[in-house]
Amino acid sequence: MDKLVSTLALGCEYRIGRILTRENKMRHRFIALGLVPGATLTTCYRLFRGLYWVVSVQHQYVGFHWSELQMLRLYEIAES
């Protein structure tokens, strides 16, 4: 069972559970960037003490502010 996470670690892989924001604009933006429920993301770069994150989603890099990543419910992928 995958574990729900509240803090991110660098170089780890996470599964997107759901998009938490109800704001349509943000939801569309997430979908367009490939951040859809079920997709996996890997944290690649951490800038300014974790204020900004660059994650790899479906083999492409996406840059985020920490507050935007909090709009995603993330699960740590359990090793089988």
Partner: peptide, 11 residues
């Protein structure tokens, strides 16, 4: 439903 070129490539 809505699919981007990138999503298609990845899939």
């Amino acid at each position: 439903g809505d699919v981007s070129i990138r999503m298609l490539s990845e899939h």
